[in-house]
Simulated scan of single mutants.
Amino acid sequence: MTIISQGEELILDKERALFLPKHQLLAISDLHLGKSAHFRQAGLQVPATIAQTDLQRLSWLIKQYQPETLLINGDMFHHGLNTDIEEFSIWRKQYQELNFLLVKGNHDRLSNANYAEMGIEIHEPSFCLGPFCFIHDALQCTEDELYPISGHIHPGVTIVGKAKQRLKFPCFYFGKEYAVLPAFSLFTGLYNIYPKTSERIFAVTPKSVLEV
Rank of each mutant, 00 (worst) to 15 (best):
M1P: 11
M1Q: 09
T2Q: 15
I3E: 07
I4Y: 14
S5A: 15
Q6W: 04
Q6E: 13
G7H: 08
G7W: 11
E9T: 14
E9S: 14
L12W: 05
D13P: 05
R16M: 04
A17Y: 06
A17T: 04
L18M: 12
L18F: 13
L18S: 09
L20E: 01
L20Q: 02
P21W: 08
K22P: 09
K22T: 14
H23C: 07
H23Q: 12
L26R: 02
A27Q: 03
I28H: 04
D30P: 03
D30Q: 08
L31P: 01
G34N: 06
G34S: 08
G34I: 02
A37G: 09
A37C: 10
F39K: 00
R40V: 03
Q41V: 07
A42C: 10
L44H: 13
A48D: 09
I50D: 01
I50R: 01
A51T: 12
Q52N: 10
I62F: 03
K63A: 15
L70W: 08
I72N: 02
I72Y: 06
G74Q: 01
D75N: 13
F77I: 04
G80D: 13
L81M: 14
L81P: 06
N82H: 10
D84A: 10
D84M: 08
I85K: 04
E86R: 13
E86S: 15
E87M: 15
F88V: 00
I90R: 13
W91S: 03
W91Y: 03
K93Y: 06
K93M: 10
K93D: 05
Y95R: 00
Y95Q: 01
Q96H: 15
V103P: 03
K104W: 00
K104F: 03
G105H: 04
G105E: 00
N106P: 05
N106T: 03
R109T: 11
R109W: 08
R109Y: 09
L110S: 10
S111M: 07
S111T: 15
N114C: 15
N114M: 14
A116C: 11
I120K: 00
H123I: 02
H123A: 14
P125N: 10
P125R: 11
S126L: 14
F127R: 00
P131Y: 04
F132T: 04
C133M: 07
F134I: 01
I135T: 01
H136D: 02
D137R: 14
D137G: 09
A138F: 13
E143P: 06
D144T: 12
Y147M: 02
P148R: 02
I149L: 04
I153N: 12
P155A: 08
T158D: 10
T158H: 08
I159G: 03
I159P: 00
G161M: 11
Q165E: 15
K168D: 11
F169W: 09
F169D: 00
C171T: 04
C171L: 07
Y173M: 02
F174L: 13
G175W: 05
K176I: 12
K176T: 15
P182S: 07
A183M: 04
S185L: 05
S185K: 00
L186R: 09
T188S: 14
T188W: 00
T188K: 00
T188G: 01
Y191W: 08
Y191H: 13
P195N: 08
K196L: 14
T197W: 07
E199Q: 14
R200S: 14
V204F: 06
P206K: 07
K207W: 07
S208V: 10
V209A: 02
E211Y: 06
